[in-house]
Write a protein that binds this DNA or RNA. Structure first.
Lengths: 186, 186
DNA sequence: TCTGTTGGTCAACGCTTGTTGGCAACGGTA
DNA sequence: TACCGTTGCCAACAAGCGTTGACCAACAGA
């Protein structure tokens, strides 16, 4: 489909630098100049390849949560699997921290988070919760707990949240998430 | 102690405008010029009274969660009272949304959130959880759920989280928060 | 070998930002 | 009345921003 171009390496370097800067500093403070410097090229190249700063952000913030298929595993383990998966993703990929940073201050970032939520978390919830009609609500509840922990642990760095072990976090959060997704009543 | 000054009204106007701007736009996008315009004075006045932008932010982001005394009420209602209280605070006072916005992108803002957490939520947790030694961890867990819901509902505006009624949110979150604070084991 | 396309740099633009210092009006106090 | 600290506005500063267009070097196809 798309032919490989001589500039692919540069484009990739720009994207990687952009992801890191957006993740570390948020939308406003991550400047095109600093991203270009990280990528070792001229700022004008960023403009040529991605149009403008918003376009660069859009390209740099493509997100795949890589959610596992929950239908295949016993309902009793679902919470633990989900929480554990999210901790993994968050610790390996700083695009997620970036998404959080940008989603909070920038409307385009918020919209990006809403669409990721809708397209990737929604279907999962629909597959496992008792009444598919309120799957979105269940998904939002689960998201609130998972995002909240990510916020406390990886962005705000509240000391007790940082010091907890992975296992502790999973042990505490799993029942919560599982209840949000599968319980018949609050 | 402090004598009333002729400029008190101006100072207050600046602070109020600053709170609104920081809450609505975050630290970087809330400019001194826009704050001064809202307050109906010259930008240089902001500098004279608050030194610089960081000083203004520090003054504008004094936060009192006004947490109720949980010791006085039955343990079974604790979660509901807490969640309900936070929803109230968040809906009445946009400084809290501002704190969240700024805490995510700005290190001074994050430190402010950590200190509010330590000074105001910590003691409450210490008073009600079984082993005071792990009160900070309990408090962090409760905070993660409450902040996560605030994030989803008031900042990111995930549609299902916005559409839920106050009562629904309380009904779902209360057992979670209560478990984090008082349960013997995860 | 010539020619058109692509990858890249350089210098500048217009604008906004936080911040500064000078200067005029006001308001108590002596 | 004369004075002095306070309050406020104005104009400007240097720096940084996103963005643009001219220009050069390397390549690919004829």
């Amino acid at each position: 489909m798309t032919v490989p171009r001589r500039s692919d390496a540069t484009r990739a370097a720009i994207l990687e630098a952009a992801r890191e800067r957006f993740a570390a500093e948020g939308y406003e403070r991550a400047t095109i100049r600093s991203i270009a410097r990280d990528a070792g090229i001229d700022p004008s190249m960023v403009m040529r390849y991605y149009g403008n700063k918003e376009g660069l952000f859009a390209a740099a913030s493509e997100i795949d949560l890589r959610l596992p298929d929950l239908g295949a595993l016993p309902a009793t383990h679902m919470g633990a699997v989900l929480v554990s998966h999210f901790l993994d993703r968050w610790e390996q990929d700083d695009v997620l921290t970036g998404m959080l940073r940008v989603g909070v201050t920038n409307e385009a970032g918020a919209e990006r988070m809403r669409s990721v939520f809708r397209a990737q978390l929604g279907p999962i919830a629909a597959g496992v919760c008792p009444d598919p009609a309120d799957a979105p609500r269940r998904a939002a509840l689960a998201a609130s707990q998972i995002l909240g922990m990510a916020l406390a642990r990886y962005v705000l760095r509240l000391p007790p949240a940082v010091e907890m072990s992975r296992e502790e976090v999973v042990a505490w959060l799993a029942p919560t998430v599982q209840r949000y997704l599968t319980a018949e009543e609050p």
